[in-house]
Design a protein around this nucleic acid. Sequence first.
DNA 1: AGTGTTGTTGTAAAAACTTGCAATAAGGAA
DNA 2: TTCCTTATTGCAAGTTTTTACAACAACACT
Lengths: 143, 143
Amino acid sequence: MSCGSEYAPQLRSRGYRVTPQRMAILHVLCHAGGHLSPGDVYRKAKKELPNLTEPTVYRTLEFLAKNGLARLSQAGRGHLTYEIASNEHHHVVCRICGNEVEVKHAPLEILYRKLESTTGFLHIDSHLTFMGVCPDCQKTLKG
Amino acid sequence: MSCGSEYAPQLRSRGYRVTPQRMAILHVLCHAGGHLSPGDVYRKAKKELPNLTEPTVYRTLEFLAKNGLARLSQAGRGHLTYEIASNEHHHVVCRICGNEVEVKHAPLEILYRKLESTTGFLHIDSHLTFMGVCPDCQKTLKG
DNA sequence: AGTGTTGTTGTAAAAACTTGCAATAAGGAA
DNA sequence: TTCCTTATTGCAAGTTTTTACAACAACACT
């Protein structure tokens, strides 16, 4: 069985239905080992489930993100990419060349708790993407 | 004259050209007093510059963001919105209902400096959008 | 197992966004 | 002012993402 079945109880306990489409998409995210665009997910999951359609992929990814099973971050041009929720890290993207670096989650926890107390929101834990200028491009700008 | 002309020297000094399209788009962002989607910008700027096209708007917004004259943040569905760069604040968006709250910039400065020293990146100052669950939806979930 | 309810999906069409390339015009030099 | 260079734009076509709604199927209940 796919790793997706691991998530079935989580869905059912919240009153959502467990469908082949959701399982296939979770499976794809699970084995990707990184970020995937909706298009990537669609193409990969369609191999397991040929009648899968694009709107379903978009809706399911949004659904999974909303329920904390997937995380989303913005890739280069502002497009969204998704990954399975277990990877607790964030990114700093270079605004010049798109170069990407991971940031461990821990240093952000403090910030979340602070934001929660000042805004009254709960569960602030989004996968964030920071923008900056990477070391390589700093050299280029000077040259 | 529009407030856009205020930015002309900034562009020229970096070797970029000052065009009616860029001025019109800056003007629109300047007077919006908030976030605008690319579509919003297109429709508003086209009134001042009827032959303006959509690809130009998308390219210009990306250009302005890359050069620090505009800031981008992700709206509800993950779509991008832009605003003029002078507004130093961020958002916390409720992942259930989309409700939005502003966060002052100051508490994030410390985080940026820390990220810069650990990643080697510079100018980390992106307009961020955090996700969470707002007080209203917390009540709903309990009920 | 059979049935009903309603959350999910597929379909079809529209809207939003991107790309490649030829034409244009901004800014520098003569 | 005129010419030259090349950054920037418009055009046209393609791709991606969203929407509305009818058909379907997962789950609860009998």
